[in-house]
């Protein structure tokens, strides 16, 4: 995930982790359509998301720094079903800010209150940080994790 964050910097990267019983076995990198759009790579940009982004107010849009490509999400979820694993966590990076959810994260990620949300910070490029949270009802609660 840290490598993915470095690869996409200065844009935010995003992805999904899946597994069973709280143990991650599958990692899916998901395209960040916001990053793609900013770079003007229209061919890679899912048109459904252009529509969606254009429906948002400019204030709402200005705060959105990552938006997972739904086609990639769809493909990841299909793979999860085929491997009998379930979505355990989302992750995204904060290239220049700390490893804690932003107000926009807390608003938008509340759609998934039952999974963990991991934030990778590259604020200190030599010492990337990662923290996991559960986000529900307008608050983010840190969740411990272990690397096996």
């Amino acid at each position: 995930m840290i490598a993915h964050a470095r690869e996409l910097a200065p844009h935010e990267c995003c992805g999904m982790l899946a597994g069973k019983d709280g143990r991650v076995t599958h990692h899916y990198k998901i395209k960040n359509v916001v990053a793609t759009k900013e770079e003007g790579v229209k061919a890679l940009f899912d048109e459904a998301k252009i529509t969606t982004l254009e429906q948002m107010t400019s204030e709402e849009r200005a705060d959105i720094a990552f938006w997972m490509d739904t086609k990639d999400m769809f493909a990841a979820q299909k793979d999860m079903r085929a491997n009998s694993v379930e979505l355990l966590a989302s992750y995204h990076s904060h290239p220049i800010s700390p490893a804690r959810p932003s107000p926009t994260d807390i608003k938008a990620l509340a759609l998934y209150p039952d999974i963990c949300h991991i934030i990778i910070s590259l604020q200190d490029p030599k010492a990337p940080a990662a923290n996991a949270f559960r986000i529900a009802n307008g608050t983010a609660t840190p969740v411990p994790y272990h690397i096996l």
Partner: peptide, 15 residues
């Protein structure tokens, strides 16, 4: 039919 809520978020303004 599949229902797929978006996973999206934002940067910390001014951080």
């Amino acid at each position: 039919v599949s229902i797929v809520p978006a996973i999206a978020g934002g940067c910390e303004q001014g951080a």
